[in-house]
Amino acid sequence: MTTIPFAVIFDMDGTLFQTNKILGSSLERTFEVLRSEGHWQGEAPLAIYQKIMGVPLKVVWETLLPNHAESIRNQADKLFLECLNQEIKEGKGQLFPNVIETFSLFKQQGIPIFVASNGLEKYLEEICAYFHLHEYFADIYSVERSLIGSKTDLVHMLLKDHNIEEAVLVGDRKSDIEAAKENGLVTVGCQFGFAAANELADADFLITDFLELQAFVSKRRSTLTF
Rank of each mutant, 00 (worst) to 15 (best):
A7Y: 05
G14H: 02
G14F: 04
T15W: 08
Q18S: 10
K21C: 13
I22N: 01
I22M: 11
G24S: 13
S25A: 12
S26W: 05
R29V: 02
T30W: 09
F31E: 03
F31A: 03
E32C: 04
V33S: 04
V33M: 07
L34H: 10
E37K: 14
E37M: 11
H39R: 08
W40Q: 01
Q41D: 05
A44C: 07
A47R: 15
Y49G: 09
Q50D: 06
K51Q: 15
L57E: 10
K58T: 12
P66Q: 11
S71C: 08
I72S: 00
N74A: 15
D77G: 03
L79T: 05
L81F: 01
Q86I: 13
I88G: 02
E90H: 14
E90R: 13
G91I: 03
K92H: 13
L95S: 02
P97T: 00
P97H: 00
V99P: 06
T102C: 09
S104H: 14
Q109H: 13
G110S: 08
I111Q: 00
Y123K: 02
E126L: 02
Y130G: 04
F131N: 00
H132D: 12
H134V: 08
E135W: 09
E135L: 11
F137C: 02
R145Y: 14
T152E: 10
D161R: 11
I164S: 09
E178N: 08
N183T: 09
T187P: 02
F192N: 03
A196V: 13
T208G: 12
D209T: 10
F210K: 04
